[in-house]
């Protein structure tokens, strides 16, 4: 394993300093914490939007801090939920008096630590509301699993909730739009190679030279099915069919789509996937209102991509296209 790092145990700390060094006017690091917040946090009179989780998904989470998106993001160790302490300090630092919405991805570690943090912040008098994103259709949502995972659809939740908060809406309203995105979004991904965590230094799972993993998670958790390598078109068809099956949309429904790179996949290939995705959307009688292509929710150096579809109505269209100014996503009017 070769990586551009120093000691594996320092990578998150150094990354955070490197982010602040890149955007000193926008980001501030909380003292002695692996937490980034807006340089001007808390923003008085605005609902704070925070997120967080294990590191290794950059630009998620800290890269989406800024006007119109997040106020704060906690960075756990690689693929490890931040501790409740860290999350608690973040929530308090982002409360401008109107309360804080925590956007949690559905992993037991994240959920348990955010729960504890919300309790702690509540005791300090901060109004905290939580939403749990679970857009990954690869995982069966039943009593026999810990539920669907939160993956790339989370970015749309950050965007919509961030825009609503920027409008001056109250915590209930902001929470409502976050839930609306969650109810309307679905994602599925595939891996061509495993990621390598700095600490382990070896692939998390072994994939043969001609194998791919369908339904992969964003932590190198093995997916749900292993198959022979297929063409980009076939992979796109498989992922898209699963996502659209789950959403079960009506004819003519407008959607936002994301082709999300897992970190190691060249942009060139993501556009090849997007070509087929847009053909399929069309074949299904749906209409793409906006298409995003890029690395939003990565898994270190994993080679692969996920496809997200989100049904949008007028409210979501307005929120998703509202201005945002963050290192990882800029939307202009």
């Amino acid at each position: 394993m070769k990586k551009l790092i120093n000691e594996p145990e320092d990578v998150v700390d150094e990354m955070l300093d490197g982010m602040v060094a890149a955007y000193p006017d926008r980001l501030r690091r909380l003292d002695d914490a692996e937490v980034l917040v807006r340089a001007d946090a808390p923003v008085d009179g605005k609902v704070g939007i925070v997120s967080g989780g294990g590191s290794g998904h950059e630009p998620t989470h800290g890269g989406f801090i800024g006007d119109g998106m997040l106020d704060g993001a906690a960075a756990g160790e690689v693929f490890t939920s931040p501790s409740a302490d860290q999350l608690g300090s973040m929530i308090e630092a982002c409360d401008g008096g109107e309360g804080v919405l925590a956007v949690v991805k559905n992993y037991e570690g994240d959920v348990m630590n955010f729960d504890t943090a919300a309790e702690m912040a509540g005791m300090e008098g901060v109004d905290v509301s939580q939403v749990v994103v679970n857009d990954d259709v690869a995982v069966e949502d039943s009593l026999y699993t810990s539920g669907r995972r939160g993956v790339a659809g989370t970015i749309l939740v950050h965007k919509a909730a961030g825009a609503k908060a920027a409008e001056g809406a109250d915590l209930d309203e902001v929470t409502r739009v976050a839930e609306k995105v969650i109810d309307n979004v679905a994602t599925m991904g595939t891996a061509l190679t495993s990621c390598i965590t700095p600490d382990k230094g070896e692939p998390t799972f072994d994939l043969g030279e001609d194998e791919i993993e369908l339904g992969i998670g964003i932590h190198g958790e093995p997916g749900t099915e292993r198959t022979d390598i297929m063409s980009a078109d076939e992979i796109t068809e498989h992922l898209t069919e699963n996502v659209l099956d789950d959403l079960d949309l009506e004819d003519g429904q407008e959607v936002a789509t994301i082709v999300n790179g897992m970190g190691g996949t060249p942009l060139m290939e993501l556009f090849v996937v997007n070509k087929r995705l847009q053909e399929l959307i069309d074949d299904h009688g749906l209409e793409t209102w906006d298409a995003w292509v890029g690395d939003y929710m990565t898994s270190l150096d994993m080679d692969g991509a996920s496809i997200t579809v989100c049904a949008v109505d007028d409210e979501l269209k307005e929120l998703l296209s509202a201005p945002a100014d963050t290192p990882g996503l800029t939307v202009t009017e």
Partner: peptide, 15 residues
């Protein structure tokens, strides 16, 4: 453990 570990095992063991 609660404040250092994070993940699922942090709250489970530590808490």
């Amino acid at each position: 453990l609660v404040s250092e570990v994070g993940g699922a095992s942090g709250p489970l063991y530590g808490g």
